[in-house]
Design a protein around this nucleic acid. Sequence first.
RNA 1: GCGGACGUGGCGGAACCGGUAGACGCAAGGGACUUAAAAUCCCUUGGGGGCAACCCCGUGCGGGUUCAACUCCCGCCGUCCGCACCA
Length: 888
Amino acid sequence: MTPCRLSWPSPGDFSRPPELNQADDHGALQRPRGRAALAEDMGRAGHFPHPQRGSPYPSGRIHMGHVRNYAMGDVVARFMRARGFNVLHPMGWDAFGMPAENAAIANKVHPRQWTYANIEAMRSQLKSMGLSLDWTRELATCDPGYYKHQQKMFLDFLRAGLVERKQSKVNWDPVDQTVLANEQVIDGRGWRSGAPVEQRELTQWFFKITAFSDDLLAALDRLERWPEKVRLMQQNWIGRSEGLRIRFALDPETTPSREKELEIFTTRHDTLFGATFMAISPEHPLAAAAAKSNPALKSFIAETRRTGTAEALIETAEKLGFDTGIRAIHPFEPARKLPVYVANFILMEYGTGAIFGCPAHDQRDLDFVNKYRLPVIPVVCPDGQDPAAFRITDTAFEGDGFMINSCFLDGMRVAEAKEEVARRLERERRDGRPVGERQVQYRLRDWGISRQRYWGCPIPIIHCETCGIVPVPDRDLPVKLPEDVDFDRPGNPLDRHPTWKHVRCPSCGGPARRETDTMDTFVDSSWYFARFTDPWIETAPTNREVVDTWMPVDQYIGGIEHAILHLLYSRFFTRAMRATGHIGLDEPFAGLFTQGMVVHETYRTADGTHAEPAEVEIKVEGDRRYAVLAATGEPVEIGPIEKMSKSKRNTVDPDDIMGTFGADTARWFMLSDSPPERDVIWTEEGVQGAGRFAQRLWRLVNDIAEITAAEARPGKDRQAALEIRRDAHKTLDKVTRAIEDLRFNTAVAFMYSQANLLEMAVRDAAGRGGATAAEQAALREAGDMLVKLFAPMMPHLAEECWAGLGHTSLVAEEPWPTLDKTLLIEDTVTLPVQVNGKKRADVTVARDAGQPDIEAAVLELEAVRRALAGKAPKKVIVVPQRIVNVVA
RNA sequence: GCGGACGUGGCGGAACCGGUAGACGCAAGGGACUUAAAAUCCCUUGGGGGCAACCCCGUGCGGGUUCAACUCCCGCCGUCCGCACCA
């Protein structure tokens, strides 16, 4: 492909910049390499930057969040390429999911049609950004050519024991007769029907992510290029805790039929003597047994199912309990009988679904106890407190201390008491088993992947009445989604399809039916990075030689909202792929960066509706800033700055922005204003400023081209030329390090400064009647360098500038400039001088001046003498190359 | 509720490992150019005091450590994100 170059304006006309971004397929800007390059790629050092939305959901239009994400990824890609790395920079589509089905229901459009139309639209939008992507690797997860491999891996995982079926809860809409996602449950009701949601148990497919709990946790320490906060969030999510399982005997007189004991899990066995009640989950078998003869309890349990399945809702709901009448016997004090409650905040998924409650040392237990008027026994006394006077009323004491009211534990520290309780209960046996057993418990639950929806990857399983669960043979993959489906009725179209699910059993040939659940779309996005390394191979999910060469992804860039689920699932999936021979490593992402969102002001009209930024005109009068509707002049209230969203109507359309300002300006602004990990506020003024700077660069480059092409002014003074070179190399050094650390906003600031300096240098030389030969050489070097520095961020403008400086190559293919370190070293150094920690003066000394020389020079300073008022300083602290502090 | 972050001028932010707080940009004000406007260029711009030199205060709030704190420690307040079927 030949580079498409835009015309340089006629000589002398430098008032207008070139029309930017007309050429979408700048040859070297977008880098298709294709399958033929696979062998070549493997022989070279690889760098694999990957936008986390490297497979965005094809919603129809890109939004500014995409622009920011891809701009960052592209800077890294271009920067690394310039530094000699072979870069894999792919793009694809995470194309399954609910919005396609919603569109199908709302607009009678087939999900496939809707999705592919969106992909077309978004691809062309992305291309106008000038991203250096390898489009030959493009993939869509809804393509049978992709999900075929996913089905294969599902079966491999099944054979490896990493898949299982078990019961789990879903949100059930009793009117629509359908399963709802958490986001479809609003205030406990189905979003479409408005009917109160119920929890329902379904048998579903799970990936056994808990098989890797320990490793997923331990390996976090080795992910050195991940943000600490993400590692911490994952650590807490996995939630390893060491505790004790304790079997409480139940008082037979209070207990239904065969139930003899209640097993609980605790991490606070030191507080066992402080236990005043037991609590079990509404789904606990004991709760069900007790409810059989207790209608009130039965309806209480039914009521708890109304909350839906979202943990945030369960946890924030009012804490409710119901006394079952059952009494548990305290393991150390058989005379003490503890009431067993069913409580709506005990999760069956964690531990044994049962706890003992120690209100004095757990806030939630205390709140519960205060509500149901149960006793509180403090058993841990804070250090320095008088145990006799220590009372707990509204605030539980959760810290360390010494044991009280605890029989043989009294006086011990918390840790000692835990150990003693564990030791005693381990020794004590009942029915041939120890009463207490130490256990490592994880909060992490297995990954339920079943979805009762059409637009997802079919789970390749056949249910046979005689053979049971039969995997679809590899030769029959992919199990394709049927095309002829209707969305007229709620529920899963696969389930009610007239023919699709009826098949012969591959094992016995008898009548059987297909699994109608499809996979969670998180599965699709848990391995696309691996597929990108060889998306052409048809016989296997990955080409081992290729995938092991490229992986892991060097730099993954995405939003913090993915900190846990997507990233943890991908880490699991990679391990599972390794266990089944599809990849040779555990960790998919060596470097992770979490970017902030793009936010914007909101505008509210008098009638309470939101107005779009494009409809609003901002006016400024002195200090007062206000908004009106552009069409009518009607005043508009400027609301809070919020994440761009359709509902708040505070979005700006990347197409509009790029059409008005050009892609380079949009990219530059996205990178310039805020640190990349923080939210960036989209403002019209900000993007205009970025546009002005693009124009300034253009003029500057033209001025440099002009002054260096003119005849050199005779002269021997090399100082000016040296200064130009020093500034250029200092900037190179700073920008390089900033981009290495992904501090794009500071890289931008350094380039602004350098442009200021270069403009001044050009003007100074012009004022002297032209540049000397030495200055011309220095300006040429500095000009080339500046263009190379901003090229990763504004690729189109950079190509034009590069050509304008007389080069015939493409700057996108040029190496990064080489730093001359000798230019960074100055002969003298200026140190700030403080008196008692406050800056009073500067002192300039030789770079290698010794401490006594610096001290002497500092004490001579007028400001220092004034501050000391004739007295001798107490101390003079000299931090070499940094600062001097005089302590008066 | 649990977990995680963030808080610096009028605004976005900078400050490497505890060492000059406010780089750079935006906005605003003043000036130059222009018949005029736009564009461009120059100057000013944290608050207070002073003719000036210069001084005092200042990084959400309250304490602490240090020669020195935006940075470290303790306690608050506020905002945002995640919570397993949104992607």
